[in-house]
């Protein structure tokens, strides 16, 4: 059993999501460079998030280490290869592996991205943008339902950072996500850094995005650093989180009535203590953001708490 861990954030009650899933506190992404530190020092971290695929198609050392860490900490799974939006068939072998890993580490939920990663059998291993059209909505909704049925639990989708849009789009990303939640009962993992990056790349107001999210579907937040190239921003997950992104987190966290927060840092990764200290800065930005009542929503048509 994971031992209880001290949270650096104020308690948010009642549970901020309709799935009844817990607010795990402030976590960090588990990365190989920190394996030794985590195993040896058992740092006081609320929870870890793993990139699911790093522990799939392997039966060796990565899984062995993950097993040890999962003994002590809650582990949430975050995937990058579900490719929920592709027009290729769903990869059932992948889903089988994903489900097996979830059961192994007892992950309370698993998430992936609103995106596609390849087509015609070729995988880009990137999170490619969707056109936000009625056809795409019907297509993604159908696949989300299939995935949820397969895994026997709600799927949580993250808003991607995008660098280009489709001329054919007839709705905004937040309208698409909201409609997807209504049609499938799926949940959301909101990456506030992605909202910021996309707002800069597409010229929308992040406040409009936040206003359009069905907050009772949100179980988790991501924060991360990005590269600001002037002409556009890139979601690199390098470096500390910028203040505008922290402020977005404060606003979003309040709207959600509190939810788990996770820092992603994927390149030029600093020492664990530096990383964790940066993650705990979230506490500053959500400390004054007392949960506020949300408007009531109709129950989900499909899905629910596991």
């Amino acid at each position: 059993m994971p031992r209880p861990r001290r949270s650096a954030q104020p308690a948010a009650k009642p549970a901020g999501n309709r799935f009844g899933l817990p607010n795990l506190g402030i976590g960090v992404g588990l990365r190989t460079v920190h394996y030794a530190h985590v195993l040896e020092h058992q740092p006081d971290v609320d929870w870890f998030e793993i990139i699911s695929e790093n522990y799939m198609q392997t039966a060796g050392r990565p899984l062995h280490i993950l097993d040890q860490i999962a003994e002590r900490y809650p582990i949430v799974m975050h995937g990058v290869a579900l490719s929920i939006g592709t027009t290729d068939p769903l990869d059932l072998d992948y889903l089988r592996d994903l489900k097996r890993l979830r059961d192994r580490v007892r992950a309370p939920w698993l998430s992936d991205h609103l995106c596609w990663t390849g087509v015609a059998g070729r995988n880009s291993h990137d999170l490619l943008p969707m056109p936000y059209t009625d056809e795409a909505l019907r297509h993604v909704a159908s696949r989300v339902r299939q995935v949820q049925e397969f895994i026997g639990a709600p799927l949580f989708l993250e808003n991607p950072s995008t660098y280009v849009g489709f001329a054919a789009s007839t709705m905004t990303e937040w309208e698409f996500l909201s409609a997807l939640c209504s049609e499938t009962g799926c949940g959301l993992m909101i990456d506030v850094n992605n909202i910021y990056v996309s707002s800069r790349n597409h010229g929308f107001d992040p406040a409009d995005y936040l206003a359009g999210i069905p907050w009772d579907r949100v179980v988790q937040f991501h924060v991360a650093g990005h590269d600001d190239n002037g002409s556009h921003c890139v979601d690199t997950h390098i470096g500390p989180v910028t203040d505008p992104v922290w402020r977005l987190l404060g606003d979003a966290w309040q709207r959600a009535g509190g939810a788990a927060v996770l820092l992603e840092w994927d390149a030029q990764i600093p020492a664990f203590d530096v990383l964790h200290r940066e993650a705990l800065r979230a506490g500053t930005f959500i400390a004054d953001a007392a949960p506020r009542p949300r408007p009531r929503r109709r129950p989900a048509a499909v899905g629910g708490a596991r």
């Binding site: 992404g29 990365r31 190989t32 460079v33 394996y35 990139i51 695929e53 790093n54 392997t58 050392r61 990565p62 990058v80 290869a81 291993h125 990137d126 950072s161 991360a224 590269d227 190239n229 002037g230 002409s231 556009h232 890139v234 979601d235 690199t236 997950h237 390098i238 992603e264 994927d266 390149a267």
Partner: peptide, 19 residues
């Protein structure tokens, strides 16, 4: 630990575009 994370974020541009 040569088996590192495979896919997560977008690689940073080697030469960032002019600001």
């Amino acid at each position: 630990a040569f088996a590192t994370e495979r896919a997560s974020a977008s690689p940073a541009p080697r030469r960032p575009a002019r600001r």
